[in-house]
């Protein structure tokens, strides 16, 4: 293996079933059901997936859901806003911990 990430892995995702066909089948069935039209539209779900993909920093997911968002009818502006939502939550998650820091400082300091 010459590199950690290989774009060819994405279209071959189903090979994960080699080690456990039953679990792979359950996972892919669940995955398909999650992204079907429901109370949320497929377009909205693709935008959520795109934001989460940036949060977990998965290049496979970013590739897949950039395409999916476009195909479901989102445009660059909407997709960029979704990424900023992920960014804001990540940043906010760090910053809110600053109150723990603040409490520690207030407790320990004079």
């Amino acid at each position: 293996m010459s590199e950690y990430y290989n774009p060819d892995h994405l279209p071959q995702f189903d090979r994960i079933g080699e080690g456990s066909p039953e679990l792979a089948e359950k996972f892919f069935a669940y995955y398909g059901a999650v992204f079907a039209e429901g109370a949320l539209s497929a377009r909205e779900k693709a935008l959520i997936a795109l934001a989460v993909a940036h949060t977990v920093q998965c290049p496979y997911c970013i590739d897949a859901y950039s395409k999916s968002c476009l195909q479901q009818g989102s445009d660059l502006e909407q997709m960029t806003e979704a990424v900023h939502v992920a960014t804001a939550i990540r940043g906010g998650a760090s910053l809110i911990h600053g109150l723990q820091m603040l409490d520690q400082v207030n407790k320990l300091g004079m």
Binding site: E37, S41, A42, R43, K67, Q71, Q72
Partner: peptide, 18 residues
């Protein structure tokens, strides 16, 4: 609507509502 790029057209009914 034609896709603006190298991807397929969306077929979801919800797109029309959007």
């Amino acid at each position: 609507a034609n896709p603006v790029g190298a991807f397929l057209a969306s077929s979801n009914a919800s797109v029309e509502q959007e």
